[in-house]
Nucleic acid binder design. Structure first.
Length: 105
DNA sequence: ACCATGACTGCAA
DNA sequence: ATTGCAGCCATGG
């Protein structure tokens, strides 16, 4: 695993419950504002059942995005449940209000 | 070193 | 609101 992944994981680990960060935001924090896509790639490598709060990362529109596989749907459902269990409220559009839940380091 | 692969993003129709 | 698409980038083969 590359250094970039480790940095990303380190940042994600700091997101407090009930809050979220975007892929692009994390990319900027670790040094490359344009590596948002690679951030998603890094999260894909996160083991399930770990302590890393991967569910607290959403896209720039406040939507949940996951891998495009069979598991994708399950992941999305799980992510939403986990966020809601932390108090994050989803709008009718299926998005969350970033102005309310996004944390800025 | 080269190439394909996406849990991204912003912009244009 | 949707769709399409061209940039962008760290990995892995």
């Amino acid at each position: 695993m590359g250094d970039f992944f480790k940095k990303v994981h380190r940042i994600v680990a700091m997101i407090p419950p009930g809050a979220v960060m975007t892929y692009g935001q994390i990319a900027a924090i670790v040094g490359n504002p344009r590596a948002s896509r690679a951030v998603g790639y890094a999260l894909r490598a996160v083991p399930d059942g770990g302590e890393l709060p991967w569910h607290r990362v959403v896209n720039s529109k406040g939507e949940i995005s996951t891998r495009r596989t069979m598991q994708g749907d399950d992941d999305r459902f799980l992510q939403r449940v986990l966020l809601e269990s932390e108090g994050v409220l989803f709008m009718e559009s299926g998005r969350i209000d970033l102005r309310k839940y996004q944390v800025h380091f």
